[in-house]
Nucleic acid binder design. Structure first.
Length: 592
RNA sequence: GGUCCCGUAGCUCAGUUGGAUAGAGCAACAGCCUUCUAAGCUGUGGGUCGCGCGUUCGAAUCGCGCCGGGAUCACCA
């Protein structure tokens, strides 16, 4: 039970005793007391005035007095303009601190018995990952960890979009103008090499289109008639027919890209339990179309195409099968969803996909519901906002795409510069220094992205590098390293952290209150699929500790009981910080 | 045009199941390292919470209407 719930339940008893009226504890509003008032928890009195038939002050006085008399956990109260501020006893908070300290799995919520698949990343294998993917990947990984911490069994999945026209474009350009280049021969990471091919294709296309337009053709027509486009479509047909030569090239180039991705994922610290390939799943869903026709929820047009009419739901008609019998994106998604729910016996499925696909997922859920699947409503589209640059969206055509590998490397370099300026790691060996720079640079990047509410679009300004001061990952990492440093020195001095009987100061009570809140924050973040909740919490905790640190001696505290208690509090706090940041995939270093 | 999302300090963001004087960081300015890590701490300035009306004891938060920005509505994925 949280302190707020405790107050609510006791206040309900008070209301019963004083006014002979039953109220549900959950109907009472209890919040954390604001900094500028004295107290730990605050009961909002306004809703109770109808019951007490007296003024806010008198009601607060009455309920406060009752609580003081009947609850040994409560030490004092004050009533200000309709708000009843309540102070818990020192013992109450010492016990709360002990509960946090002694619980190794603090913040791990009890099992729900639910199994959830989280699909994220799902890249195209025709170009390297960029900042948009980074947000997707970090969100997917973090939300998976959040759901697991909230007691669910989580399966992290990705769907590699490894076939289609866009893939053939890179293949064609490679054949035409890369002279047999390989990652080895070019010294390029595979995904970057293939990305170069994709860019080269667009150059070829532009030249051919310009030539055709100069010859009098209109642009739209020219884009279809360009020789390279014809060649690419031919290649796609051959791919579908299993042409050995095309398949071999496809396999080779996809291999390059995938090993490049693997490296990026590794650096980024994300992984998957299950990898799906579109080349193996793109035919799924066709039987479902037949099922829908049989059920009468889909219609076949005279030209043979199949549609689902969603106009009654406020949407349009949606194509599910082309007139030539081939399937579209939606068809495949219907099929994969059905297969996954069946194969893994899922309770729910989270898709981490940008908000530009809101319509798609709205349709997906509606169509699945029409097909009679009761799990359709347990599909959740974690719709996150785009990452934008100061002058709008990233555009590969204009070369404004922020490459994931470059960005991570840049962050590492900046961490190194800052670190070397401080000179704090001078006595650390080179390999460990190198590791720490990565941890700090990535910490800055991950926190920068995850602290923003996923649903909102966010802005990245490449000209201003990501900060290492203020509300940032390194700030929290620094706080952790600082505590570790104190604990190291305590060890050298022979001091042992211990929960002694020492009284907690008001500032220490604030810290315990925050620590005590952590499991609720995990629950809240998981329920809202929002790592930002955890980021904000970790920042509050670190900030609060830094203030405490500056005004309270720990190692220099003469009283041994106080000193050991402070060491214990600091150690527990560092542990909770590390747990919270681990949910964001951010490592907290022992020193920096 | 239909549907959906967004608008909070110069900038980037919190705060939105209605609660006290709307908070952080960055940037600016002023302080604090012979004392546990200054990637830190303290202080100053900075707001018609897009606009209007309504509901309420109470609205950044809820409702309606505007204004501004964005996404989407392909026999693309």
């Amino acid at each position: 039970m949280t302190p707020e719930q405790f107050i609510a339940s006791k206040a309900a008893l008070a209301v019963k005793a004083l006014y002979n009226t039953d109220v549900e504890p959950s109907a009472l509003q209890v919040t954390f007391t604001r900094k500028e008032f004295e107290g730990d928890c605050t009961l909002v009195l306004f809703p109770l005035l109808r019951i007490s038939h007296s003024s806010p002050d008198a009601t607060g006085e009455a309920i406060g007095s009752w609580l003081l008399e009947n609850c040994p956990e409560i030490r004092a109260f004050n009533s200000v303009k309709g708000f009843l501020n309540i102070c818990f006893s020192n013992l109450f908070w010492r016990e709360a601190l002990e509960a946090v300290t002694s619980d190794a799995s603090f913040g791990q919520l009890p099992p729900t018995g639910r199994r959830i698949m989280v699909e994220f990343s799902s890249p195209n294998t025709n170009k390297p990952l960029h900042l948009g993917h980074v947000r997707n990947n970090l969100l997917g990984e973090s939300v998976s960890r959040l759901l697991a911490a909230a007691g669910n069994e989580v399966i992290k999945a990705t769907l590699v979009n490894d076939r289609g026209v866009h893939i053939c474009k890179s293949m064609y350009a490679w054949q035409q103008c890369f002279d047999g280049a390989t990652p080895e021969s070019s010294g390029k990471k595979g995904d970057h090499l293939v990305g170069d091919c994709y860019v080269a294709f667009n150059d070829i296309l532009r030249r051919e289109v310009d030539a055709l337009v100069a010859g009098g053709m209109d642009k739209e027509q020219a884009e279809k008639e360009a020789p390279c486009m014809k060649a690419v479509h031919e290649m796609l047909v051959k791919w579908e027919q299993g042409d050995p030569e095309v398949r071999a090239l496809w396999k080779k180039m996809n291999g390059w890209v995938l090993s490049g991705f693997e490296q990026t994922y590794k650096t980024l610290g994300i992984s998957f339990d299950k990898v799906y390939y579109e080349s193996q799943t793109y035919l799924l869903g066709k039987e479902l179309v037949q099922k829908g026709l049989d059920m009468g929820v889909f219609q076949r047009d005279p030209d043979g195409s199949v549609w689902c009419d969603l106009t009654a739901d406020g949407l349009d008609r949606k194509l599910l099968l082309r007139s030539d019998g081939t399937s579209v994106y939606m068809t495949q998604d219907l099929g994969t969803a059905e297969r996954r729910f069946a194969e893994y016996n899922l309770d729910s499925h989270v898709y981490v996909v940008g908000d530009e696909q809101n319509y798609h997922f709205q349709v997906l859920k509606l169509v699945l519901a029409k097909l009679g699947f009761d799990w359709a409503e347990r599909i959740f589209h974690l719709s996150y906002g785009m990452v934008e640059l100061p002058d709008g969206k990233m555009k590969s055509r204009e070369g404004t795409v922020v490459d994931a590998d470059d960005l991570m490397e840049q962050m590492r370099r900046e961490a190194r510069t800052t670190s070397e300026e401080s000179g704090k790691l001078e006595d650390v060996d080179e390999a460990e220094k190198d590791r720490l720079w990565s941890v700090i640079g990535l910490g800055a990047l991950k926190y920068f992205i995850l602290k923003v509410d996923p649903r909102k679009k966010m802005l990245f300004n490449p000209k201003e590098s990501i900060d290492f001061n203020g509300n940032t990952g390194p700030f929290i990492q620094y706080t952790h390293a600082r505590i570790c440093s104190i604990l190291r020195k305590a060890g050298e001095l022979g001091y042992v952290p211990a929960l002694t009987g020492a009284e907690l100061s008001p500032k220490e009570i604030r810290l315990v209150r925050l620590l005590d809140q952590y499991p609720q924050k995990v629950a809240e973040a998981a329920a809202g699929f929002s790592p930002a909740v955890i980021a904000a919490y970790a920042y509050d905790l670190a900030k609060e500790f830094n203030q405490y640190y500056h005004e309270t001696p720990i190692l220099r505290e003469p009283d041994a009981e106080s000193r050991d208690m402070r060491l214990s509090l600091a150690g527990t706090l560092a542990g909770v910080l590390a747990k919270a940041m681990n949910l964001l995939g951010i490592e907290l270093p022992q020193r920096m």
